[in-house]
Nucleic acid binder design. Structure first.
Lengths: 215, 215
DNA sequence: GGACTTATACTCGCGTACGAGTATTCGTAG
DNA sequence: CTACGAATACTCGTACGCGAGTATAAGTCC
C-alpha cells in the first residue's frame, strides 16, 4: 500500500482548499477559515497551523511565492497551491465523501465501557447528555434557520448533516432512557449485582469474549 | 484549567477497564481487548499499547506487581490498576457518557469542502458511499442478530448505537441524493459554473464568510 | 526432522500534534 | 499622549502516536 496522505492532518485539507482561491500567508488562511466557521466542520487545532503549512511545502503541495510586508509588522511568506496540491485536495475530498470510515465516536467508546458504572448512575449521566443534546439541537436549528437566509444551500450541507446526526443520537438516547426508566432493560439486576460486588460472574466473562466473526 | 486526562489516548481507558478485572501483562490486555472486539468500539492502534501502559504507570494509574515467565518466552511485567486508576477510569467513562462532544466526523469535513468538486462527481461519490453504507448496515444487522442470542443486552448497546447512527447517515445521504437526482437542489447551476471556471463570484466569497454567532 | 507458518511479545525511531509562550503593533479610552 | 487591552504573526519544546521491524517459540505438514 502506497503512502497514505503525505500530511494526514485534516487542517491540511482546509489549508489547501483556501489556498486554491488565491495565494495567502498562513495567518490569513487561519482568519479566512475561522471566518467561514470551518473549525466547526473539522477538528482543527490552530497550534498546528505553521507545522502543517511547512509540511505541505516540504511535500510540494504548497510553494512559497515571496513575501509581503504591511507597515512595520513582521514579513509574511505567501504560499500558493501547486498542481500536486490541487490534485491532493480533490482526491482527499473524494475519499472523504465516498468512503464511510469506521471511526468510533467517543460516545460509542463510552457505551462500551459503561459496565464499569452502575445502572442508576448511567441513567443519570444519559439524562444529562440528552438534556445537553436537546439544547444543542435547538441552537443548531436556530443557527441554521438564520444562515439559510443568506447562504446558498451548498454551504449549509455540513451543518444540516451535523444537525441530523445529533437528532438521531438524541432519539437513540431517549429511547434507551425510556427502557431504563421503565425497568424494561433486560439484565438490570445482574448488572446492578455485578457493579456492587465489582467482579463479574465467570460465565459472563466468557461470554463477553465474543469471537469476532471471520470476515 | 487543570490538566486534562494524564493519558489522553482512549486505548488507555480500554487498558484500565480490563486491568480492573485482574492484573495482566500488556500482551494479555491486548488479547482480551481484541477478543471482546473493543477495537470496533474505540479508535485503537496496537502500536501504541506499550507506550500507553508505560504512561499509565508513570502517572500512577497502573503499577507493576512483578513478573511472570512461561517456558522460555521473554519475561512479562504484570500490571495492576491503582485506586487512582480506578477513579480515572470511572470519571472518564462518566464524561464520555454525559458530555456530547463537538467532534466533526470526516464525512462532515468532506461535505464542508465539497464545493471544490463539481455536482455531478459529488453525486457519483455519494452514490458510492450510500452503497457501501447499506452493505455495512446489512452486515451489522446480521452480526447483531447473531450476538443477541448469546450476549446480554448490556454488551450490545454500543453495536446497536453504531448501527442506528449508520442508518441515520444512510437515510440522510439517500435524501440528499434524491434532491440531486431530481435536479431540485437549489443553486446547482451556480455550483456547476463555479466549478468550471474555478473561481467563485465575489459576492459568494463574501457570503461564505459567515460571521460566527457570538456565543 | 527440517522447513514452513502462525502466535507471542515486544522495541525503536521518526514524524507530528499542539499547548503555551513571545514579541510587536494597532486601536482607543481617559 | 500614554497606558492598556486586543489583535497580529508567529516560535518552540515536549510528549505522544503508531507503523514497521524483530526475535523467539510453538504448532504442523510432509
Amino acid at each position: 500500500m502506497a503512502k497514505r496522505r503525505p500530511v494526514a492532518n485534516l487542517l491540511a485539507l482546509a489549508v489547501l482548499t483556501v489556498a486554491v482561491e488565491r495565494p495567502m500567508h498562513p495567518y490569513e488562511m487561519a482568519s479566512v477559515l475561522r471566518a467561514r466557521g470551518k473549525d466547526d466542520d473539522m477538528p482543527i487545532k490552530w497550534g498546528s497551523l505553521y507545522t502543517v503549512v511547512r509540511n505541505l511545502e516540504k511535500h510540494g503541495l504548497l510553494e512559497a511565492v515571496g513575501t509581503d510586508r504591511q507597515g512595520a509588522r513582521p514579513e509574511r511568506t505567501l504560499y500558493r497551491v501547486t498542481d500536486a496540491g490541487r490534485r491532493e485536495a480533490a482526491d482527499w475530498t473524494r475519499e472523504l465523501l465516498s468512503t464511510p470510515g469506521r471511526e468510533p465516536s467517543p460516545f460509542e467508546s463510552g457505551l462500551s465501557v459503561m459496565g464499569g458504572l452502575g445502572p442508576d448512575e448511567v441513567r443519570d449521566l444519559l439524562r444529562r447528555r440528552l438534556e445537553l443534546l436537546e439544547r444543542q439541537v435547538e441552537a443548531d436549528r436556530r443557527a441554521l434557520e438564520r444562515e439559510r437566509a443568506e447562504l446558498p444551500r451548498l454551504f449549509l450541507l455540513e451543518s444540516e448533516y451535523a444537525l441530523a446526526m445529533r437528532e438521531a443520537q438524541a432519539a437513540w438516547v431517549r429511547e434507551l432512557l425510556k427502557e431504563l426508566d421503565a425497568g424494561e432493560f433486560p439484565g438490570l439486576d445482574a448488572w446492578r449485582a455485578y457493579h456492587r460486588t465489582c467482579d463479574l460472574p465467570a460465565d459472563l466473562a466468557d461470554l463477553a469474549e465474543r469471537g469476532r466473526p471471520a470476515q
